[in-house]
Design a protein around this nucleic acid. Structure first.
Lengths: 207, 207, 207, 207
DNA sequence: GATGAATGAGGCTTCATTCAT
DNA sequence: TATGAATGAAGCCTCATTCAT
């Protein structure tokens, strides 16, 4: 199944995985190239055969993982059209990714955080694509008369993502190995938003 | 009320304000002590008369500003007991702080990010106190039979905060000076959560 | 006479002198910043308070020393108008500089070499000014009917300088401490050129 | 005459020529082995099958080219015995080599420059042999009563060479493709030295 | 012979922090 | 208190050279 030529010594993968571990453990700035090299079992210089520099290494991880996230999300939503169900699946998928790959999640979060301030001009387009999937769910729900028309998709989308992300960060940062059930958290958030976005019955919201 | 002798030359305040500007502009890691000193109009060494080190400077800013946030939040909510209204006021207050002091907001966000990953053992207790106000709103709403009992206050609280924070970050990071109306965003988020947390009428959430 | 504030600890001068020694000893590329710092008795970082980088250190030495050369040359030629005598004085001055400051001479030579190939866009204007003095001597000699009109001042000037420089290099590179008398070499070259530039069957080379 | 099997794939020649181009373009220190390999169309490691290291590559070029220069000089002077004419032919030959192979000239000059400082113990014996030809011309001229006995052949030889070399460097370094006529420069220098070395009120410079 | 991926020593430079004034 | 020149540890990255294929 696997390509023997690549699988045996694929240095790029070794380095990427090592970098994820080290970045997750220490954060980008505290991570030393030599830490990553040692973890990967390669020489320092080898890293520079595959990545332009330390920043490029971080961004490459981000890009690669977001590609996986994006395609994984596509599969997770496949065949489901109901906006409410798609919302739930989005949240579940997101948290399951975190659960299944805690370290990658940490790095993506580091990246998202620091890149915004530190890499002033980097545009996390992959993130936008990922998020845009939920934006689209909102719009479809609105068109189907399921979600309130006065919802601002942009605000709602970022609010949803921010909420998921913050909860994921609390989970990831916790010293406990599995501080709270992520699937339940996903349903909490999904249902909260689904109700919040819902068109109607809610008669008395005013006071 | 204020000491005129102190107010004119209060180096600590000068340094704090300079640090806020510089941290906001460049981020913590890219900020140089000498940048802050120059901006404050003091010598590099002077900073170390008031702060133990660069990290302490950041944390001091965080603590001081969170104290202001906390007391400001208290004032904003004063006299209002209805959980729904308190929720709206919380969101409005949060975004108005961002609006009125964009740079402080940026620093707090930087701080929140870095403190989690970089300052391993720092516990942002002031943030927890701030957030706890909303946690309390949730619980009160539940006790008053207004919010669903099956809501997890912890998840909901962090989800709400994460949403607000992410939206604030998008606002702050935007190249436009006022990319979207924050008050409206506050109401969008507040109403979304109020509806989402609401106990009832919502008959058909199942599908 | 000397400025006590400067003379006691003038780090810049310490560094410059140390750099001259080390550059002369090892050449620019082999010279280590830490060698220079150690020789100067300062920390590595101190060098960067006074010079932008290693290259700037080299160029600064070049500029400073060429300034001294240029003004020294002016003094050496002062009051002498006869082109032949000025030619002799030029050669004597040049070699005496080499003799009195062998290491500076080495550095200038290193610099001249490197600047041309390595520092692509650096224009050694100070050197041109220095050389231009001899170019002017040639032209004056031509106008006074002393030197052949068919001499190309540009070729002659560079030829003279190249000759002096190569001889200086042989002297400087020799393992002996004073391999041959520089004053005599100066007169050899000067007289050779004087005769070579002379208009006619010049019997009287004396003056 | 040539071995067709060798000439087609003679890697050593490919590498040498590539190195000349790259050294001429960037200088020795800035030249990368991989630049040379790419230019030669071989792998980096292949260079080490033919040359011990980078320095050896430079020195080999120098040795090979100086051999050519030396034999070429011999041919150029063949059959001419008059020291004055031999002097002119030397200068003409030297500049024609520069003219016909500008890049090789650049490398030889780089080499001469840097080798002296950088390769402390390398003795450019081939250069001495080349130069010695002119030293011999001087001595023959002296013996034939044509050149002044008080000339120091060593000084004169190096002065002549330094002059030629410096002029060549100006020509080579110029951004213009042919900044000044080298043949004329050769005659300028040759006649200048011939007159300068001449025994006496030399009226007849012609021959 | 030929390759080129991998190596890893080593240097320039930065910058938080100190301390003599 | 205030200064700011000096410190020096530490890291990213380069690139000549090697060696398994």
């Amino acid at each position: 199944m696997s390509d023997p030529k690549r699988s045996r010594t694929d240095k790029r993968t070794l380095i990427t995985n090592a970098a994820i571990n080290v970045f997750a453990d220490k954060g980008f700035h505290q991570a030393r190239i030599s830490d990553i090299a040692r973890t990967a079992g390669v020489a320092d210089g080898t890293i520079y055969l595959y990545f332009k520099n330390k920043e490029d290494l971080l961004l490459s991880i981000f890009e690669e993982k977001m590609d996986l996230m994006l395609s994984g999300l596509g599969e997770a939503l496949e065949g489901v059209n109901a906006p409410r169900q798609r919302t739930r699946l989005f949240a579940l998928f997101h948290f399951r990714q975190v659960f299944e790959n805690r370290q990658t999640a940490e790095v993506l979060q580091v990246e998202l955080r620091l890149s915004n301030k530190f890499l002033k001009d980097y545009r996390p387009e992959k993130l936008w694509a990922y998020l845009g999937v939920f934006g689209q769910i909102i719009r479809e729900g609105q068109e189907m008369g399921m979600f309130r028309k006065d919802l601002d998709p942009f605000i709602t989308m970022w609010g949803f993502f921010g909420g998921l992300d913050e909860i994921a960060m609390q989970w990831v940062l916790s010293s406990k190995s599995d501080p709270f059930p992520l699937d339940e958290a996903a349903l909490q958030m999904a249902n909260l938003f689904i109700r919040g976005m819902a068109l109607a019955p809610t008669s008395s919201i005013e006071s």
